[in-house]
């Protein structure tokens, strides 16, 4: 069974300035299925449509055409959000609240029952290694601590599907290792994980399948056995599938 599915999804951004309308393609007929219980990586260059796909999934954007469904329901659907955990590329948390208050807020928003909510918050703070800083305001947190707080809010309600946007971008090697361990732990618990990344080496270590996005379309889907034990297979497939959309030419040496 599919955990999520994109059917011919298009997203066009229209901007109007002084009467001039400009259009940018976010997604262009995306077809993609992610199975329940798998770890799926979305690979692509900047502007390839990774974040747009995730925002459509989370109801932050509306598709211009096509349909998106998650856990058997069409989105946007507020109810389905109770079963999804979302960690954006940076910790977009309220810095004037403490770590505990933030987590309490997201536990309440995720409709965790009031009884046992406080224990869940305390446990989650321990799980992500923030117990010692639970009552400090987020304005005093380091980048690594903020990232952990962001992961904690995504997992507080024990979701079935976890969506991570660029989860390892900007992290130090130790933190990257911890995120990798977390993804594998979630997979071990039967959760579905969808994450986007630029980092091919990271993706190939944890994913069951990957999808390569280019120009808002799914250029290729690969399963683990297509790259495991084959050095550079994923990198070569990626280079062959994508085309630059940022107007920058290739580097030619010699």
């Amino acid at each position: 069974m599919n955990a999520l599915s994109f059917k011919h999804v298009g997203k066009m951004y229209r901007r109007s300035h002084l009467g001039r309308v400009s259009e940018t393609v976010g997604l262009d007929g995306l077809d993609l299925d992610v199975r329940q219980g798998e770890v799926f990586g979305l690979l692509g260059l900047n502007g390839s449509g990774k974040t747009t796909a995730i925002k459509l999934l989370m109801g932050l954007h509306l598709p211009t055409k096509g349909a998106v469904s998650v856990l058997g329901r069409s989105v946007p659907d507020i109810e389905i959000l109770a079963r999804i955990g979302y960690a954006p590329e940076a910790a977009y948390l309220n810095r004037s609240l403490t770590g505990r208050e933030n987590l309490r807020l997201f536990a309440a928003l995720s409709r965790l029952p009031a009884t046992g909510r406080e224990e869940r918050v305390t446990d989650m703070l321990k799980d992500v290694g923030l117990a010692h800083a639970a009552d400090k305001r987020l304005s005093e947190y380091s980048k690594g601590m903020l990232q952990r707080a962001s992961l904690a809010q995504a997992l507080i309600h024990d979701p079935e599907l976890i969506v991570m946007d660029e989860p390892v971008t900007g992290l130090d090697p130790l933190a990257i290792k911890e995120v990798r361990a977390l993804i594998l732990w979630l997979k071990g618990k039967g959760k579905t994980v969808l994450f986007s990344s630029h980092d091919i080496s990271e993706v190939e270590k944890v994913c069951d399948r990957i999808g390569i996005l280019s120009g808002g379309r799914l250029a290729r889907v690969m399963a683990q056995d297509e790259w495991r034990g084959k050095p550079d297979a994923l990198e070569d497939a990626f280079a062959a599938s994508v085309k630059r959309t940022d107007g920058v030419g290739e580097i030619r040496l010699g």
Partner: peptide, 14 residues
């Protein structure tokens, strides 16, 4: 602006 709204609206909140 701070994108804090992303996290709120990706929870089941009308």
């Amino acid at each position: 602006e701070s994108r804090a709204v992303f996290l709120i609206l990706t929870h089941p909140v009308k």
